[in-house]
Every structure is written in structure tokens, then in C-alpha cells.
Amino acid sequence: MAIRYWLGVVQRDHVLRGVAGGFAQVNHGARAPLERMHGADGFVFYSPKTAYPDGEPLKEFTAIGRIADDETYQATQGPMMTGPNGDFRPWRRRVEWDHDAVATPIRPMLPSLDFTRDNRDWGYQLRRGLIEISRHDFELIRRQMRPSPEDTRRNRSSARITMAR
């Protein structure tokens, strides 16, 4: 089966929970969109805001990885598993996240991405919560989310300075 590439649209606070838990969840826990994915597919999260519903605007790619296997599973335990009726059981996919990736803004990439180039209304398609993207777009986003060795050294140095204060 050919590898496909996916872009999920989720607020950053939810992305961070998914990265910490090793999973992806889209469209309020819907199963159908996740069933289209297969093991080894590429997956990237785009976060328009920091939090739902009243978070600050963000417009960044916030996580990137690969679908770990072919199983879609339903979460049954853990924080946030109870809806108003105590019955929230979202569907998820296991993801091998790139933990070295850094969030990166979409704006500088707009002219280069297939799904945004020459499309003033590029954000409209993201309302679906999950779209398939080209390999070109996935690789471009992945490269932008990988810090250069110089950036990594600089961030570690500033982290030491911050921690020393």
C-alpha cells in the first residue's frame, strides 16, 4: 500500500496531550477519518489556536510523525474521558511522534505548499479537521520543523541560562 500524508487540525493544547500519549485524535474523536490512515503514513498537526474555544491565534504546525500501525482504537480511560453524560470515548491512532520537531509558523510556507499556493482561501479546507496532503508538503513541513544543529545548541544554551536564574 502506498504511503499517504495527512494534516490534522487541532488546537495546540490537545496536540500536546496527543504527543505525550503517543496518539492522534481528530474531529472530536470521530472514527471515520482515522480509518483512512495506514501504518507508516505521515501525519502532521496544524494548530490555528493555542486552546479551544478562546485560545490565542497560533497558525503553526505543532507536531509531526508517522502512523505506528493499522489499528484504530477507542480510548476508554484517562483524563477528559467523560463527556456531559460520562460517555466520551474518542477514537485514536497510535503515532510515532518526532519529539525533536519544533513548532513552526505556516505563513512563510504559504507560497510553497501545494495545498496553500495560489489559494487565498486555503484555510477553508482545514475546517474538515483532516485533509490529505502531498508528499512534497509533508517533507517541506518536516524539514521546517527540524531545528538545525546551531538552533539546537542555541536553545540548549538559553535553557541552561534560564534554569540557572
Rank of each mutant, 00 (worst) to 15 (best):
G83Q: 14
A2W: 05
H99A: 12
D151M: 06
P111Y: 08
G21H: 07
V44Q: 00
E35H: 10
Q125Y: 10
R160V: 10
P57D: 12
W97P: 04
R156M: 02
I106D: 08
W122Y: 15
L126G: 07
G39F: 04
Q144S: 01
P48Y: 00
G65V: 14
Y73P: 03
N119V: 15
R94A: 15
I141V: 05
R146A: 05
F138Q: 02
S47D: 01
R66Q: 04
A164K: 14
L126Y: 05
G22M: 09
W122P: 11
T152R: 06
R135P: 03
A51Y: 06
G123P: 10
H99P: 10
M1R: 07
A75K: 02
F115W: 13
W122V: 15
P53R: 09
L34H: 14
I64Y: 00
H136V: 08
Y52E: 01
G78W: 01
D114Y: 06
E60S: 12
Q144C: 04
R154I: 08
G55V: 11
I3L: 01
T72C: 01
H38W: 05
L130R: 14
D151V: 09
W97V: 12
N119K: 11
H28R: 05
A24R: 04
P79Q: 01
M145K: 03
L34P: 08
I64W: 00
R143N: 01
A164R: 14
H99R: 13
F138Y: 09
I106Y: 10
A101C: 03
